[in-house]
Design a protein around this nucleic acid. Structure first.
Length: 361
DNA sequence: TCTGGGGTCCTTTATCGG
DNA sequence: TCTGCCGATAAAGGACCC
């Protein structure tokens, strides 16, 4: 693709960076004997755990993220299972992003292992952007021994699909003017925002590639994906995505949830579980100097359907007993509306405020 | 004994005061 | 006094993402 010194660019240049099999890669660095083995970071293969990350050895057996660990074990008898160590991943992640900011200062982190870079701030052309992306890859590797894939284009959506294009470790640059033709052949599911539901609807309507979504007549689009979602996805399928980098980092809600080893019906046990989770939540609130005004309880029934009940207070709270009490009341309400055994309960708070804000200023 | 845990955003519906 | 409308906010559900 041509990427010559394209005069002045009115549009953005955005890169998307994605660390390769991040959790698994960290575990391999911590224990190099894992490097040659199929590895899954995730839950209990004999319980209800799922795969968080599989290394590339494990992927050869068809193992991938979100698959149940039991299924992963069936696909490869000698796969090694490791429990996630999130605080370790956070440390590695911080180191990575500090390194990235040394090359491109403006970054939006969208997860421990991925984020967008404002390359346009440092590069004027796509040729320069490519050099910069290579420099990011080199420095991350030098600083942390981790590898990453990067996509560069004029928008978030194209940069993201580009970073996914050559994995692991690849670099894909899609210059201005080539966005739609680059996206066109990809499977519809690769478009961010198209999940299982939208995919099903689109495929039922004969739309299987991003290009055919881009070309879909207005009426057809409205029939398959009503509402603003459809229009937005079609715009993105055409490579049009006005979103800039979102640099604000404040949490909107925090929550704790737990799937039981076996489904639970006993009210006292459920209450005890909620109270323990409320205590954890409360600890987290106090550690970070925040309170929440809205408490919600989440129930997942055996058929996987989800109910939530929530209640709002006039003032924020951080007390574990109080949150637990409210959460139990909400659980009772939900179970009155729809009785049944539960496989998961959760409790969350939103409407967060930081009560040390004034003191810090 | 399929199917985690932590989030965000959007839409619809209910409720309430003016 | 009754009714309708409007806007704001809360509550609930759904889809999606890593």
């Amino acid at each position: 693709m041509p990427e010559g010194p394209a005069s002045t660019l009115s549009s953005m240049i955005i890169a998307h960076l994605d660390l390769d099999a991040f959790f698994a890669a960290v575990e391999e660095l911590e224990d190099p004997t894992l490097r040659t083995k199929p590895l899954v970071v995730g839950g209990d293969p004999h319980g209800r755990g799922v795969v968080a990350t599989a290394n590339y050895e494990a992927r050869k057996f068809g193992i991938h993220s979100a698959m149940s660990c039991a299924e992963a074990l069936r696909r490869c008898r000698h796969v090694v299972f490791v429990r996630p160590r999130h605080s370790l991943y956070r440390e590695y992640s911080q180191h990575v992003w500090e390194t990235v900011r040394g090359v491109v200062p403006t970054v939006e982190r969208t997860g421990l292992d991925e984020g967008y870079l404002d390359v346009g701030e440092v590069a004027a052309t796509f040729l320069q952007a490519r050099k910069l992306a290579e420099a990011v890859q080199t420095s991350v590797r030098a600083a942390t021994s981790l590898t990453c894939a990067i996509g560069v284009s004029t928008s978030k959506v194209v940069a993201k699909i580009a970073s996914d294009h050559r994995k692991p470790g690849g670099l894909t640059v899609v210059p201005e003017g080539h966005e739609a033709s680059f996206l066109s052949p990809f499977d519809i599911r690769r478009l961010p925002g198209v999940g299982p539901k939208a995919e099903q609807r689109l495929v039922a309507g004969g739309v299987e590639t991003i290009g055919s979504l881009a070309a879909l007549p207005e009426g057809e689009l409205r029939r398959l994906l009503p509402g603003s979602v459809g229009r937005m996805l079609q715009e993105r399928a055409r490579g049009i995505d006005p979103r800039g980098l979102d640099l604000q980092t404040q949490r909107i809600s925090i929550s704790v949830e737990n799937t039981f080893e076996r489904d639970l019906t006993d009210r006292a046990q459920l209450h005890a579980e909620l109270r323990r989770m409320a205590e954890r939540l409360s600890q987290h609130l106090r550690d970070t100097g925040r309170t929440g005004r809205t408490v919600s309880t989440k129930l997942r029934y055996t058929d996987f359907s989800i109910r939530t009940r929530s209640t709002s207070l006039r003032v924020g709270i951080d007390d574990g007993e109080q949150i637990g009490e409210l959460a139990c009341g909400l659980l009772d309400r939900a179970l009155t509306d729809r009785p049944g055994a539960l496989r998961l309960v959760g409790v969350g708070v939103s409407g967060l405020a930081s009560h040390r804000q004034l003191a810090l200023v």
